[in-house]
Amino acid sequence: MKSVYISLNSIEKVKQFVNLINAYDSDFDLSSGRYIIDAKSIMGIFSLDLSKALRLDIYNDSCADDLITALKPFITEPN
């Protein structure tokens, strides 16, 4: 498992992120504080505090490096 922190501070970024991550056949979780949701769920993402960095957990190591490269515009430092 690999983890990165991402920023989804606009509706457009959330849409782009969900479209990108749904192209991968794997499981991903987003967490903010004690809340953990399925990263492929746009409704779940909007239930999180998007003003803070979110931790993305990637459970498939075979696609992790490719996905992290594709997510460069979203990657940020933890708050």
Results as ranks from 00 to 15, higher is better:
V4W: 02
I45F: 06
S3A: 14
R55E: 15
E12F: 08
Y59N: 09
V4C: 07
L50E: 01
D25T: 12
L30N: 00
L8T: 02
L56P: 05
C63E: 15
F46R: 07
S32P: 06
I21Y: 00
D29A: 08
D57Y: 10
L30R: 03
E12M: 05
V18W: 02
I21A: 01
D57K: 14
F17N: 02
A23T: 13
F46L: 09
D57I: 11
K52W: 08
R34Q: 12
S32I: 12
I58C: 02
Y35S: 13
S41I: 05
Y5A: 00
S51M: 09
L8I: 05
D29H: 08
Y35T: 14
S47H: 03
I42W: 01
S10M: 01
L30A: 01
L56T: 13
D38Y: 06
R34V: 11
D29L: 08
A64S: 15
V18T: 11
Q16T: 12
R34N: 14
K40Y: 02
V4Y: 01
N9L: 03
I36N: 12
Y24E: 03
C63L: 13
S32K: 15
S62G: 12
I45D: 03
L50H: 04
R55H: 08
S47Y: 10
Y35V: 13
S51G: 12
A53Y: 07
F28D: 00
I45A: 02
A39W: 08
R34W: 11
V4G: 00
I36W: 11
K52C: 10
I11V: 13
L30S: 00
I6P: 00
D65P: 05
D61Y: 08
F46S: 04
E12C: 02
G33H: 05
L20P: 04
V18I: 15
S31I: 09
I58P: 09
D49F: 10
I42K: 05
K15F: 05
K13G: 01
S47G: 06
D25S: 14
S26G: 14
Y35W: 10
D49I: 08
D29C: 03
L50I: 02
L48G: 04
G44Q: 01
M43D: 12
L50V: 01
I11T: 14
N22W: 05
S62P: 10
K52D: 12
I6L: 06
L8M: 02
Q16P: 06
S10C: 03
N9Q: 11
I58H: 04
V18N: 02
I11W: 05
N22I: 11
M43N: 11
V4I: 15
N60M: 07
A23H: 13
D38Q: 01
I45N: 02
K2T: 13
S31K: 15
D65C: 07
S32M: 13
Y24P: 07
I37F: 11
N60A: 12
G33R: 06
D66V: 14
G44M: 00
D38A: 00
G33K: 06
G44E: 01
S31C: 10
K2G: 09
R55P: 04
I36Q: 14
I36Y: 12
S26D: 01
I36S: 11
M43L: 15
L48E: 07
K2S: 13
I58V: 14
F17Y: 11
S51F: 07
K13P: 04
S47E: 11
S31M: 15
D29G: 04
S26L: 07
K15A: 10
I21L: 02
V14M: 03
D25K: 14
I21K: 03
